[in-house]
């Protein structure tokens, strides 16, 4: 049984079907890719998984436990963390303070003995933001903002890490470093789900890739399988050429 299981999730906005009977799973220790054209429903799926959007139908399970009725807060405490495609940073706070908020929250409800301050320093270094730790996040370029969001997630010690286009806004060098970081996080035992337009990155780090188009999963498989999938090619390049 997978750590994160999404089954039969359907979301309707009025007559518009944003997600249609989506099945999806993520395993610990692996990076699972979720790709698809703009508007395919990737962010909507993340909203359903984290509880920001109630689905019309379907189930979300973590470790076999149904989350469907739980609030975003409860889900986060069970080990769900995410970043946002349209950054949701605490813009009035510094990089360090952003991560600190998350560490404090975890300290507040868990029985961890770790001192939040040390946790924060470790994470700042891990995601490579030491040089800008005291800068206000408003002043950072997008690529680094994405790292702050990642750092904030890590401070909650998640089991499942949902990353919504984490590499957009990063330059090539940053992406290489980021790929290493993702592998290391997965190796720590996290189930990482990666929504990303940088197909190169996805193919490099993902063990399993799901392709979403118009709210439906149209293909699932290893990166090499996906690269040769007819349905995927037609979704990305237009109908059968």
């Amino acid at each position: 049984m997978a750590l994160l299981e999404v089954s039969g999730v359907t979301v309707r906005f009025g007559g518009n079907v944003a997600l249609d009977d989506v099945e999806f799973a993520a395993e610990p220790g692996l990076v699972t890719g979720l790709i698809g054209p703009n508007g395919a429903g990737k962010t909507t799926l993340f909203n359903v998984i984290t509880g920001l959007l109630p689905p019309s139908h379907g189930q979300v399970r973590l470790d076999g436990r149904s989350l469907t009725r739980l609030s975003p807060t409860k889900r986060a405490r069970l080990g769900m963390a995410r970043t946002f495609q349209r950054l949701e940073l605490f813009s009035l706070l510094s990089v360090r303070e952003n991560i600190w908020v998350a560490a404090d929250v975890r300290k507040g409800w868990s029985h961890d003995r770790d001192d939040p301050a040390t946790v924060v320093e470790r994470i700042v270094e891990q995601v490579g933001l030491t040089a800008v730790a005291d800068a206000r996040v408003d002043s950072l370029p997008t690529g680094q903002c994405r790292l702050v969001e990642l750092g904030r997630c890590l401070a909650t010690k998640p089991k499942v890490l949902l990353l919504d286009e984490p590499a957009s806004g990063q330059d090539e060098n940053e992406t290489v470093v980021f790929a290493e970081l993702l592998r290391a996080l997965a190796a720590d035992g996290m189930a990482v789900v990666l929504v990303e337009h940088d197909v190169h990155l996805v193919m490099k780090v993902c063990a399993q890739v799901h392709v979403l188009d118009f709210g439906r999963i149209i293909a699932s498989g290893t990166p090499s399988e996906i690269q040769h999938d007819e349905a995927v090619l037609s979704a990305y390049l237009g109908t059968n050429s």
Partner: peptide, 16 residues
Amino acid sequence: IAMKDSEAACATLGMN
């Protein structure tokens, strides 16, 4: 301040 900036982010970090 975090709550004022983004309640959605706070909730997904487990804040009450």
